[in-house]
């Protein structure tokens, strides 16, 4: 059903749409970053599409497997039209790791974009209040990036040694990222 959306986007934005895909009824358009906000506003305001629900924004980290590194994935839904669409924007690491904010289109995107920044370190340009939302101030790194250590814990209180159980491969001692205190890797670590 929402393939009509993909067709319409290709017709309207031409080169702005990098590629489209349909998989088991789920439709996806990969967009250039420059047109993202415009596409979002169009999909929301157009009477045929009426994407009035911003469902989620997240990212996929293709570390060492693809350049650009991240897919930033937007899920949109129309409650009135009962259809949905996925939009993706590809961004790379470092200075290129940013997307424009869509909070101007859907106010509800605010916290999702903060989560995107917190978990993946993808900056959101134009966000009114881009702070971490799940992790605390002072947390180092972005935990859902593939290069974040699997056991990268940053405890806020000193940890006691467990009295009862000692997991050989799951030690309780902290593994503080970026502060020079690094636990030696044990054999069981991935």
């Amino acid at each position: 059903m929402s393939q009509a959306i993909l067709e319409r986007l290709k017709e309207r934005y031409e080169d702005g749409v990098v590629e489209t895909a349909t998989e088991r009824g789920d439709d996806c358009a990969v967009l250039k970053r420059e047109i993202l906000v415009d596409v979002c506003r169009f999909l929301k305001d157009d009477a045929d599409f009426a994407m009035n629900l911003f469902v989620d924004v997240t990212a996929v980290d293709w570390l060492d497997r693809r350049t650009p590194r991240f897919d930033v994935v937007f899920q949109l839904k129309s409650i009135t039209k009962r259809h949905r669409v996925t939009l993706k924007v590809r961004v790379d690491d470092g200075d290129d790791a940013w997307v424009p904010s869509v909070t101007g289109v859907w106010r509800g995107a605010d916290w999702f974009e903060r989560e995107l920044w917190d978990m993946f370190g993808v900056r959101v340009d134009g966000h009114p209040n881009l702070r971490r939302i799940l992790m605390w101030d002072g947390f180092e790194g972005h935990p859902l990036r593939k290069d974040y250590p699997v056991a990268g814990r940053q405890p806020l209180v000193p940890l006691r040694k467990s009295e009862v159980h000692v997991f050989e491969n799951n030690p309780v001692d902290p593994f503080v990222v970026g502060l020079g205190v690094v636990r030696e890797k044990s054999d069981g670590d991935a």
Binding site: M135, P143, A151, L159, R160, K161, S162, V164, N170
Partner: peptide, 20 residues
């Protein structure tokens, strides 16, 4: 013990914080 949440966010058993 932290259960199956062996990740960046979860305390691996509250006896790391207080005696149980």
């Amino acid at each position: 013990s932290g259960g199956f949440y062996d990740n960046y966010a979860t305390v691996q058993g509250v006896d790391c914080i207080v005696p149980v």
